[in-house]
Nucleic acid binder design. Structure first.
Lengths: 198, 198
DNA sequence: GCATGACACGAGCGATCACTCGCATACAAT
DNA sequence: ATTGTATGCGAGTGATCGCTCGTGTCATGC
């Protein structure tokens, strides 16, 4: 942000720009979301937009951040809630929270996951991934005595987290002929089979 | 292709355009790969480029197609070679072929997987995914008597193929602190644990 | 009510882009 | 040699883009 909006009307303008930007992205696609068009959609002049955003990237970044932060919070909250329960319950609860969050706005997910170059997302997404990976890694390390001796917790966590995350996103976007209950059950099985004593 | 090159020199020109395009993409990134720049890099005029390619998309598409087709062929070949062996061997051989193919040109993989919007890839990548999914699905169906009764082969195949593919790509691109032997072993375990009788 | 800074405007700048077209050249067949 | 065609050229077109800046309006403190 180039300048902090101080008056009520400017704060409202920033808000209008963000929601207009999201609307343009949803309606016309990510590539068509030019600053001029977002400003027009928001009923704001291009110059006004640049009073509070340093460049185009900042506008779109703010829009995507809102979405990713929302998903992030819901998933980490679900995981934290069940952190003391058994492995299968943890997987199930976290996965359900993730699927709920992703299914709530499939169109925005499609833009973020399919239209944005991964590069621009990696910082955001990998922040969440890393947080979850660390949590799971710690969890596994605590249970290490019960597990295979040769399995490094961080390795298992790296694999498990990426597998689950990607499968959940693909499931929501591709809508394969697998009903959700079955899907959740299978991923639970996949994880408990891989990490049997967790 | 707008026109089929008939003489030797025009075929060479098309070749020069494709390799120049790949070089530009690798050096300057996907977004910077404009038709003018590719033509300049190839030592060719923009007009000439458009004699054999209908539009920009066709040029970049041809470049990416080459790469994806190459990876595709190697992986399907490896899988077909081991199709009559046991599950673990199949997984190991296929995964090794995939990792070999991906590691051979990490930079191009990065462009295709990280800089290209997934949308533009989905047709290409999902063709491979679908082929492998079908193969694995048939394989599992043939062994169904040995397996859990409630597990639909196509469901298990969908999950297994996407999990392996994504994990392999991410492993090559992110280079997590997991050595390759361990990684292959873990994915083999992940699969054999999930599909124990396969 | 007046001054001051925050706010909003929108025409337009400079750059880039995908793509075209009129023209010159090289090749192949006769 | 001549002719028809395939090839190649590159300046140029029109459109779009991100972004600026000079101008005017509004809110706020005094």
């Amino acid at each position: 942000m180039r300048k902090v909006p101080q008056q009520q009307r400017s704060r409202e303008m920033v808000e209008r720009i963000l929601t207009a930007g999201r609307d343009v992205v949803l309606r016309d696609g990510y590539d068509a979301a030019s600053t001029n068009r977002i400003a027009a959609e928001a009923g704001v002049s291009p110059g006004s937009l640049y009073q509070y955003f340093p460049d185009k990237e900042a506008v779109l970044s703010a829009i995507v951040d809102r979405y990713v932060d929302d998903v992030s919070k819901r998933v980490t909250a679900a995981l934290a809630d069940r952190f003391d329960e058994t492995g299968p319950q943890m997987v199930r609860a976290t996965l359900n929270a993730l699927l709920d969050a992703l299914e709530e706005n499939t169109e925005l997910l499609r833009v973020v996951a399919d239209e944005l170059p991964r590069k621009e997302n990696s910082a955001r997404a990998s922040a969440l991934e890393q947080r979850i990976t660390d949590l799971l890694s710690a969890y596994l390390a605590a249970r290490r005595p019960l597990m295979r001796r040769d399995l490094t917790p961080s390795t298992a966590a790296w694999i498990a987290v990426r597998a689950i995350e990607n499968l959940a996103v693909r499931y929501v976007l591709e809508q394969p002929p697998i009903d959700r209950e079955t899907f959740v059950g299978e991923l639970e099985r996949l994880m408990t089979a891989y990490l049997p004593e967790a």
